[in-house]
């Protein structure tokens, strides 16, 4: 058992023992050595289930949405990306700070459980099991931005190379090439909505994709409706995406959703000035597209 796991258990036990919180969000070991899964514990003796290892890849902040209508106090363990998710919810007024006890962990980057599963199965020996997962290789903010207590060590950004390199590559293509590129990708979409469901920025109570009167987007899985879905989904998280990469990780058909999200992050930076979503919690602060100024650029419409 690692030192961090021991610390995590100790803190969870303490919080539940002295009734500072009603439930603790953390990770526990899954059915395989290469899987850790979210777990929600309520009794001090359950703290022994908690772990913190290199497979705690899930962003736990999304699960706060399941508790937004209650009054229970919640202890939540957060990596850098999870903590930005928490700020997202606070900024969007979906949660109150008073109900949270946040334990931050400087994140060394997580490994890809799927790659490890494939390698272990013997089905595909060419998996990269040494390096970080795809989402963590793009990480610029591995350290928690909001916490009551901090564990682990301060980490350096895991991103090597240029953040918008892939976006620029696509921008450099011709219109026809770009259409073909994305048409190929979107035709794979099975419209399972995993990317929306796992997203902490997708926190509307009633989602446009569930509206039936009027039905804004066709439910069929054809290219036109799939494209419509992805245009709307991306625009709805514009300026609010915390870049946790969960959408892309959850996608069962490998749609590079961060290629869409990152394009809008780049555009928001260019049009509204440098902006990093949910990096700190400030009273009344709103993302660029959630406020109105007379000098807002027209181009973003």
């Amino acid at each position: 058992m690692s030192e961090l796991t021991a610390r995590v258990r100790e803190i969870a036990k303490r919080l539940l023992d002295n009734q500072q919180v009603d439930v603790v969000f953390g990770w526990e070991k899954g059915t395989e050595p290469f899987s850790s899964t979210p777990v929600f514990i309520r009794r001090p003796e359950e703290a022994e289930r908690l772990v913190f290892d290199e497979f705690c890849i899930h962003n736990l902040s999304t699960y706060l949405l399941d508790y937004r209508d209650g009054s229970e106090k919640i202890g939540i363990f957060v990596k850098g990306c999870d903590s930005r998710g928490v700020v997202r919810l606070l900024e969007d007024e979906q949660f109150t700070r008073e109900r949270l006890y946040i334990i931050g962990i400087g994140c060394p980057g997580m490994k890809d459980p799927v790659a490890h599963a494939l390698a272990a199965s013997g089905l595909d020996g060419n998996q990269d099991t040494a390096g970080l997962s795809a989402k963590c290789r793009q990480c610029v903010h591995p350290n928690p931005v909001l916490y009551d207590e901090l564990l682990g060590v301060q980490q350096e950004p895991h991103l090597r190379g240029e953040r918008f390199a892939e976006v620029k590559q696509i921008e450099a293509m011709s219109t026809a090439e770009r259409y073909q590129f994305f048409a190929d990708i979107f035709s794979r979409c099975i419209r399972c909505y995993a990317c929306r469901n796992i997203c902490v920025a997708c926190n509307c109570r009633r989602c446009i994709f569930e509206e039936t009167r009027p039905q804004w987007v066709g439910r069929e899985t054809n290219l036109a409706d799939n494209m419509m879905y992805h245009v709307i989904r991306t625009m709805h998280v514009a300026g609010r995406c915390v870049e946790c990469g969960e959408c892309e990780r959850a996608c069962p058909v490998g749609i590079p959703l961060m290629l869409l999200n990152r394009k809008l992050i780049k555009d928001v930076n260019q049009l509204f000035g440098p902006y990093e979503a949910a990096l700190s919690l400030e009273e009344g602060a709103k993302p660029p597209l959630s406020r109105y100024r007379t000098d807002d650029p027209d181009n973003f419409l």
Partner: peptide
Amino acid sequence: MKNFLEYLGFEP
């Protein structure tokens, strides 16, 4: 939006 549609291969 315009930038984004262009990015996806629609004529601006």
